[in-house]
Design a protein around this nucleic acid. Sequence first.
DNA 1: GGGGAAGTCTTACGGGCGTTCGAATTTGGC
DNA 2: GCCAAATTCGAACGCCCGTAAGACTTCCCC
Lengths: 222, 222
Amino acid sequence: MSPTTDAIASHEVEAAETEAATKNLVFVAAERLFALHGFQNVSVRDITAAAGVNLASVNYHFGSKDALLFEIFRRRTAELNRERARMLHEANDRNAGKPPVREVLAALLTPPLRWLAPDHERRISLQFLIRARSEGTDEIRQILKTDVSHLRRFSDALLAARPDLSPEEVYWRLHFTLGMLHNNRFAEFDRLNVLSEGTTSEGDVEALLARMLAFAEAGFAA
Amino acid sequence: MSPTTDAIASHEVEAAETEAATKNLVFVAAERLFALHGFQNVSVRDITAAAGVNLASVNYHFGSKDALLFEIFRRRTAELNRERARMLHEANDRNAGKPPVREVLAALLTPPLRWLAPDHERRISLQFLIRARSEGTDEIRQILKTDVSHLRRFSDALLAARPDLSPEEVYWRLHFTLGMLHNNRFAEFDRLNVLSEGTTSEGDVEALLARMLAFAEAGFAA
DNA sequence: GGGGAAGTCTTACGGGCGTTCGAATTTGGC
DNA sequence: GCCAAATTCGAACGCCCGTAAGACTTCCCC
């Protein structure tokens, strides 16, 4: 709230992110807690305590706990989809509008996997999004189910790249690929680390991305 | 409880499943509701109402709501793992103890995918198990994380089938395959149906199994 | 520097939750 | 047919939750 009066640090008045400080504290704390423990297991009191703000803040700034969850979901989904769309667009430019399977898959998988990096600013956001997919409110689930416009850009690109396959087959293979992606929860990494006795390290996301792309591309080439 | 006094229908005294009738009603109703709506979204009152029994039944027969969830999880996991272990055993017998990748993956994926069939008795159980993996209690999550003995039989078989690959690579590919499997929730099918405008039908589980096996095998062959 | 808006704080309400208790009922062995 | 154990039942307890109300404080513009 003060930056507008602070002439020196005027560059801080960037984005629309710089809203009421309290609102942002709530947003960040809630995203983190939801991502780590799940929506239902985190109370409004947990959030406001972690954010160091008053209990009433959630309802004042967001309207309700559900609306808070939805706003986090909306903002992060838009961010992620923007990055993906940009990569797909670049792939189109590089390939005269007909990118090969590998480049389409790269546009789909690279942004979320980059978010997974240990020092990435959006590391926790990706966990949030993966969780919201299965544990979100009815509203979120409805949107995931019906709003497929973003995903359609990728399925169309894949259909164009593999006109020899039946559309049904392409859709299933995309489904499989998304399954691989959505399996990247912390808990699953823990399990994998136990199974492999520590030989797998999810910290190297570039290597993970390469592995996953190779696996998915081979699946599509089958 | 009557079957023991009912001489004629003595064949009904099979398994240990035939416990107190009320206990079974609760078990079945809870499994269904948990699978459809999630653990946190289903109250003890919902369960007992659906089962047509008294509210106190859950605590009387199972101790607590958490313990009920755990018992369902334990029983269904054991069932599924038994079927998988049997198939892996058969694959070992057919191949002198060194089954190829495809047969190992088939042993891993076939039982759960068979459960997915629209008329299969365990259709709802699989949805329950997939959900419990991410929405379960701390106890369940702890077991999933630390008890990898069952899964190790499969990773060992895969390591033996592909000694040319680094173990790390094999573990990751198994992780990807499991991701594909765990993505088979009703909600994801719905989404896929919308995206493909109805051309995909998850009702034909044999076709789905074939597709998934082909995809995963190709991923392993990469 | 005054006034209206925006934000923050304390407090509490109403409700749903898992669980428990004691009484009532049913069951099974003799 | 009786008695003790097992089960079912209705009712309530205590807790935590999301949300709202109202007083108070801070901010911003004129």
